[in-house]
Simulated assay, not measured.
Amino acid sequence: MHRFPANLLDGYRNFMTGRYSEQQQRYKVLAETGQSPQTLIVACCDSRAAPETIFDCGPGELFVVRNVANMVPPYEPDGQYHSTSAALEFAVQALQVSNIVVMGHGRCGGIKAALDPEAEPLSEGDFIGRWMSLLKPAAEQIASNSILTAAERQRALERVSIRNSIANLRTFPYIRDREQAGTLSVHGAWFDISTGELWIMNGETGDFTRPGM
């Protein structure tokens, strides 16, 4: 019989004697009154880029959706299973968040896969390949640019992907309507794992710059 991972149990014990003990009353209030986060973050599954850690947020402050390469698909009410779209719907329609942040990061494995479509699939289903095909047009253009180094191509697509996801967000009628009404703001961000730098996307130009610290 396989044992539950020991490091997780150790972490849980630290949580109970540390953060939970310090914020026990806050957890009780959240349990009784429900959550009301102001920000939804669409982030990558990558274990090195956890939004709650990067933004130093406590319980109830962020509503986080994580998937491979922090992507948002276009609005497709086709009766299929859409986990990211379901999370968007809940955050915007039920929780009434005021901000949506699409946060990419450096050295993203999903983006690397999109730039190398000839790579051997990890499984027969090739779910990653299918998912990353959302970026196929941009990936093909960037991959064919021989002037850029491999690292430059990767970073370029990581940031283009954020802009692509923001464009897809605006295909959701309730997101578009609330943004136009001024009750919802959409943002882009990119986190450099190796340096800890956070880059913010300019909503008008699409360029990424470092915020003032």
Rank of each mutant, 00 (worst) to 15 (best):
T39V: 12
S85G: 15
E52I: 06
I166T: 04
T171P: 01
P137E: 01
D177H: 01
G188H: 04
S36H: 14
M1R: 12
P51T: 07
D126E: 00
S185I: 00
C57N: 08
L157T: 02
M213A: 15
A150V: 15
Q93A: 12
V64P: 06
G212T: 15
L88T: 08
M103N: 02
L148W: 12
T183E: 12
Y20Q: 07
E140W: 00
V97M: 01
E120S: 05
N145D: 15
D116E: 11
V102E: 08
S47L: 06
L8V: 12
E52Y: 09
Y75G: 01
G203Y: 08
L30T: 08
T183M: 02
N145S: 05
V42L: 11
S185H: 13
L40R: 03
M16E: 15
N14R: 15
D56F: 09
L122K: 11
S47F: 07
L198E: 07
N168E: 01
Y20D: 04
F191E: 03
I200S: 13
I162S: 05
G110Y: 09
W190V: 02
E32W: 12
S85E: 11
T33I: 09
I166M: 10
P74E: 03
T195W: 09
V64R: 00
P5G: 08
D192Q: 15
G196S: 05
G206Q: 07
A167V: 06
I162N: 05
F191V: 03
T183C: 05
F127M: 10
R13E: 14
V29D: 13
R66L: 10
I41D: 09
E32S: 14
D56M: 14
